[in-house]
Design a protein around this nucleic acid. Structure first.
Length: 245
RNA sequence: GCUACAGGCAGGGAU
């Protein structure tokens, strides 16, 4: 019944999976969606074990609950369990779970399975999955793959460039970060800030400062924070204080 | 935007 399910959803959404569970136990008829919601409730509350218990008891798990379980395991770092659910979903449903598991591989730096998944589903590629693939390469220091993949992308937006610049900043590839930044005609503040971070983290505090000066009239929290912490982490305490003069 | 459309998922900057 819809209103019972709605009630259970409300409890689950409020993080109270136990109460949601008791609501469902009192429902006059069992509703597959209600159980699915409960799975999600436990997963959202971080109780992956309880979620999995209910999930496995479902006669036929639907796509949203599969997605939730995959996401929950992924957050847990339990990629094998996530992958198992993915592999058990019928082929024609997999597109829904595809991006979830793909992102999980990307986030945890498992390049090989990410690439395998990426290559296996060309028809599912969007700017989002392209971005994630490039970001993964950049982030883990595979500069060559990052740039060739970037070149293959059918379209670009500021987010791609920002992601890849950030990834390169983490892996210490300052030169390449700069080169790619220079390819962008109209960098926005987020991208601009990312390159400042790249410099600040990789021994280029003066370049970072120069870039900051050009935009210091913009009252942006992150921008200022980046410069401030960049200075203080390298012992430039006077410069940090002078920012506010 | 994606989805099997009550419920789910979804790429960008410091902590």
């Amino acid at each position: 019944d819809v209103s019972w399910t709605a009630l259970a959803t409300a409890f689950a959404g409020a993080g109270d999976a136990a109460t949601a569970h008791s609501v469902i136990d009192r429902m006059p008829e069992t509703d597959p969606i209600a159980w699915s919601v409960l799975t999600q409730g436990y997963a959202a509350a971080g109780d992956v074990a309880s979620a999995m218990k209910i999930f496995t008891s479902l006669p036929a798990a639907d796509l949203p609950s599969r997605n939730v379980m995959i996401a929950a395991f992924a957050r847990n770092g339990d990629l094998p369990s996530a992958r198992k659910i993915f592999d058990e979903t019928p082929l024609d449903w997999r597109s829904g779970a595809w991006s979830t598991i793909f992102q999980a591989y990307v986030r945890s730096g498992q390049i090989a399975p990410a690439k395998e998944l990426f290559d296996s589903k060309r028809e599912l590629h969007s700017i989002v999955s392209w971005t994630a693939m490039v970001a993964a390469y950049a982030r883990w220091g595979h500069v060559q793959e990052a740039t060739t993949t970037l070149e293959k992308m059918p379209e670009w937006d500021v987010t791609v460039w920002t992601t890849v610049v950030c990834g390169l900043a983490v892996s210490g590839e300052l030169r390449e970060a700069r080169r790619l930044f220079d390819c962008v005609r109209e960098p926005d503040l987020v991208l601009w800030t990312s390159l400042i971070v790249a410099y600040a983290r990789n021994g280029g505090i003066h370049e970072a400062a120069a870039m900051f000066r050009e935009v210091r009239w913009i009252p942006d929290n992150v921008l200022w924070n980046v410069m401030l912490s960049g200075y203080s982490q390298h012992g430039y305490h006077h410069e940090a204080i002078d920012l506010f003069r």
